[in-house]
Design a protein around this nucleic acid. Structure first.
Lengths: 405, 405
DNA sequence: GCATTAATTTCACTGCTCGAAAAAACATGT
DNA sequence: ACATGTTTTTTCGAGCAGTGAAATTAATGC
């Protein structure tokens, strides 16, 4: 029986959450600004901030003298997060790289470790060990933050199970079906959350462009894989908190090109770096995909296509067609007002755009509602990190902090 | 500024809504059962039911003597909806038929009118006039219920605009882009809601099979059109309340068969009745689709296929393939645990099943998570009506009644 | 009739928000 | 230096909804 009853406690949680959320989005605010932003009365804001300050969650900032000509009246005192009360460890795992960032409760990056990943990395050392080693290393270097670790969050690629704490399949070799989330949670006595990279991209895109904060956006990653996350009017879509969009492995052409996942005809098999390379070099569609494509090789192909090379141009056309039809098919189920293209493939957006638009034009939804606005966004690391960061801090805010007695 | 603040009023609304929802789902209940079902304390249930009874929303039922051996202890007095306090008019509009039902607040059908629809129906008389005429007729026949009309809800096919109160496109001739919802609302001084048929199917499926009430279900209608609605763990998905899944017009084959919508290669162009007929009779794919297919012609084709006729069998294979790849592609974005096939095409499910399964097997999500459970459900009128009914009554419960002072 | 049992109601208490008024803290004008 | 105006915060009493525990109500069983 889901406990949906509303009582004074849920009121408290909700309104404290509102205050924390406002501070998260807008940074330090005065109590008056908080009242305006949350819609709560001044009296309530006084009570809530008073509690939060007592609990050391937030603190009054030192008034900044000098600066801007402060107007008349009593000057506002800003309150902001107390960075020391919590820390989170954020792993971003990729096919060829892993990065662990330690951030404090204020969202400030404290320390960071990068490690290469190879197809054998997780075969030789179990994922849980790999992660634990690096986390211990960061903890040793930052004892203060280590003491207040509240969450570990991991950005992964692949398909999560229905609970959202196990990977059932992943393009990263030997990562799926290893219960590293549970093991880490046990080892560090801290909740460990797995997030699909696509979903984080969607979350991150919202934070990077405030104008999109409440829009419906599909964020498509094109690079070593093809992935997608969606937001619907500011809400993250799909499987509650697990996320299940497998856009890259949506079928594009029945019995088509062989994909890394073992299926045939996936969008990824045409639009990812290895897919484009395979097409460009006229390698048979059924050839086993390359396990990894060096960045410069992909960039070289983009350069060749931009220089007019026929084979390269053709390969990107095919890729654009795959992405375009994928979007067109997705839009039959969910139609966003904006589409972001991020990742290395964003640099090739110009080469794919015509085919993408052509494919979208064949969708009824687009004919009726108009084409979504499609924008390429070159950097993709920032959205993922930002998404992971904000999602994790928000989780702490709403689950741990707002519920504090 | 969205008013998300929680106060005693929102608590009241939420908990009253819980009580109304429990009664809606489970029928008349005792106060003790309400407490168990909602999670509220007995004291609160006493207060809430007291208010609701004072407001004539619910009433105590006469104790049913005789029946089952009532145990010891004070006998429970059930409370149930007061049917007289509201009524709703429900239109179901189809390509060849329109039906208007008048129901009371208890969900009991009071009266019903059916009218044929032809491609010229809405050309000769504006939709608003067509609807208003029939509604007036029902009101005249049922003056008591007419006095308490609270909502008009219309089930339509097509694409709604973003506000959800206008049709931007519809397979029903001359129905799109006519502001009949606004006109009706003005004429009858009552809120008028448009609902996509696919979404109602999803809603209705939940109500018909309580086991699915909290599952993730995709309900696919196959018949004169192909449509789909989805629920995610009991929540209706897609564009908030407007609904935008255009499954039938998801592209199946680029540049494929001509669809009624004017696009090419839509799933509908292969899997709807006209599509199957076209394939079976080897009519060129680019031939203009028949405006309507008589029921017996479609049924005849099913019979022929079941008897082993090659052309007919082939046509249903092609249809199954279209539906299967559509589902497979949808599942890259949203993967339900159950798929319902409803509508006339459900009778041909056996003929399509193999191709549907084959197509699904080519989806990575299915390989990893297993195939969803696919079930055909012959009757489709009931789910639509039930969905429209429950959605509308729930709307009244939550918006009008729960918010009463 | 009286004990037993189960459904409902009553009652005292808690915790939250809110509006209005008061207090605080600073700028400006005389 | 001091009164006045402005803006931010806090204080205070009221109101409201939920809760647990105890009391009440209405049957059954012996």
């Amino acid at each position: 029986m889901a406990r949906n009853v509303s009582d004074s406690d849920s009121v408290r949680r909700q309104n404290r959450g509102l205050v924390l959320g406002a501070l998260r989005v807008q940074g330090p605010l005065s109590r008056t600004a908080l009242a305006a932003s949350t819609g709560l009365s001044h009296a309530s804001i006084t009570a809530i901030t008073h509690d939060l300050i007592n609990q050391q969650v937030i603190a009054e900032l030192e008034p900044q003298e000098k600066s801007d000509a402060r107007g008349r009246g009593r000057p506002a005192t800003l309150v902001g997060f107390n960075r020391q009360i919590g820390a989170a460890a954020l792993f971003e795992v990729d096919v060829n790289r892993a990065r662990l960032s330690l951030v404090d409760y204020g969202g400030i990056l404290v320390d960071r470790i990068e490690s290469p990943v190879t197809p054998t990395t997780f075969a030789s050392s179990p994922p849980a060990v790999f992660f634990a080693e690096r986390l211990r290393q960061l903890q040793a270097r930052n004892p203060v933050e280590a003491a207040s670790l509240r969450r570990v969050a991991i950005s992964v690629q692949g398909i999560l199970d229905r609970d959202g704490d196990g990977l059932k399949w992943s393009p990263i070799a030997h990562l799926a079906n290893r219960p590293f989330a549970h093991e880490l949670a046990a080892a560090f006595a801290v909740p460990v959350a797995l997030h699909k990279r696509g979903r984080l991209l969607a979350e991150g895109a919202r934070w990077l462009d405030p104008a999109l904060h409440d829009a419906s956006v599909a964020t498509v990653f094109v690079g070593s894989t093809v992935a997608m996350g969606m937001t619907f009017r500011g809400q993250i879509m799909g499987r509650g908190d697990e996320g299940a969009t497998e856009f890259g492995h949506m079928n594009h052409l029945p019995n088509g090109a062989l994909c890394r996942c073992g299926m045939r005809g996936c969008i990824e098999a045409y639009a990812s770096d290895y897919g484009v390379l395979r097409t460009a070099y006229s390698v048979p569609e059924t050839a086993t995909p390359a396990p990894a494509v060096p960045q410069q090789e992909y960039d070289g192909l983009i350069a060749r296509a931009e220089a007019g090379d026929r084979a390269a141009t053709h390969a990107f056309n095919i890729a654009g067609r795959a992405v375009g039809f994928g979007l067109s098919r997705m839009m039959a189920v969910f139609d966003p007002s904006h589409v972001f293209i991020v990742g290395p493939g964003a640099r090739a957006f110009g080469l794919m755009q015509a085919e993408i638009n052509a494919a979208l034009a064949s969708a009824l939804v687009c004919r009726v509602n108009g084409l979504p606005q499609i924008v390429a966004h070159h950097d993709e690391k920032e959205p993922i990190f930002k998404g992971l960061l904000m999602k994790t801090l928000n989780e702490i805010d709403q689950s741990d902090i707002a519920a504090l007695a």
